[in-house]
Amino acid sequence: MSGQAGRPQLTPQLCFSSATLRDFLRLSRSSLDDSISQQLNALVRPAGQGFDPASTSQLGPRRLGHIIDSRSCAAFKEKILFPTWQARSDVLNYCAVVATSPDPDDPDTTLREAETERDRQRIVDERLDPYSGRFFPREPRTEILTNLIRQERAIENIVRRRTWATIQERCGEGTSEWEAAFHAWAKKSWVPRAS
């Protein structure tokens, strides 16, 4: 029951490579959140109780009525779920900082400046061509990254809410929201990092 995708090295190149960033998030989500039912099923040990022949007497899906042991659920959340979520949060937070920082290494800066200069020199007669006044400058990569981070955070919120609902159902958890449980874990397990 791995659940944790390898944490990438936090560099601006990771953030500006949207394919790499999305691949990390997709792999991490698919290895844990998308397979949360299977992950939780692995916590139940029906073989220890023996095979129940009555389990095959019904045709069709059965409702999983068994609640998973609270110690197993707590260990799963502490050792697998929350650390995986924290790794994704760390990457998204780091990339959000990169997106709001100056970007002197943007390779498209010169190209954008040339396009803007050409646009200023254009003669626009909207009576002849109503679309001639349109100009769509190339976005700086920091703006593209900002939009990507916003989208991925929205996806992360949906994924975590769905995962938490499954955990609440299967582990018999209370009504706490995932944010409260995650922040309580983060506060409890926070270790100062050397600078």
Results as ranks from 00 to 15, higher is better:
79 K>F: 11
124 V>E: 02
171 C>N: 09
81 L>C: 01
141 R>Y: 13
193 R>C: 08
134 R>M: 08
91 V>S: 14
167 I>T: 07
62 R>H: 06
135 F>H: 15
78 E>R: 12
8 P>R: 04
2 S>C: 02
184 A>T: 10
70 S>E: 07
147 N>A: 06
82 F>Q: 01
116 T>W: 04
15 C>Y: 10
93 N>F: 09
45 R>G: 01
28 S>Q: 12
122 R>W: 00
106 D>L: 04
150 R>D: 11
126 E>W: 02
9 Q>M: 07
107 P>R: 04
177 E>V: 02
151 Q>A: 15
47 A>Y: 13
192 P>F: 11
139 E>C: 00
109 T>F: 10
127 R>Q: 12
180 A>P: 00
76 F>E: 00
100 T>L: 02
108 D>W: 05
20 T>V: 07
34 D>S: 07
94 Y>K: 00
82 F>R: 09
4 Q>V: 10
18 S>E: 13
45 R>S: 10
37 S>H: 11
176 S>P: 02
54 A>E: 06
186 A>T: 06
102 P>V: 00
111 L>P: 00
38 Q>Y: 08
63 R>N: 08
126 E>R: 09
159 V>T: 15
139 E>I: 00
184 A>G: 06
109 T>V: 10
35 S>P: 01
52 D>Q: 14
35 S>Y: 01
37 S>I: 05
158 I>R: 12
18 S>C: 02
173 E>H: 09
22 R>A: 12
71 R>K: 15
1 M>N: 12
133 G>Q: 01
119 D>L: 11
150 R>V: 02
76 F>D: 00
44 V>D: 03
46 P>G: 11
190 W>K: 05
99 A>E: 02
38 Q>N: 09
4 Q>K: 11
34 D>T: 03
42 A>V: 04
138 R>N: 01
195 S>I: 08
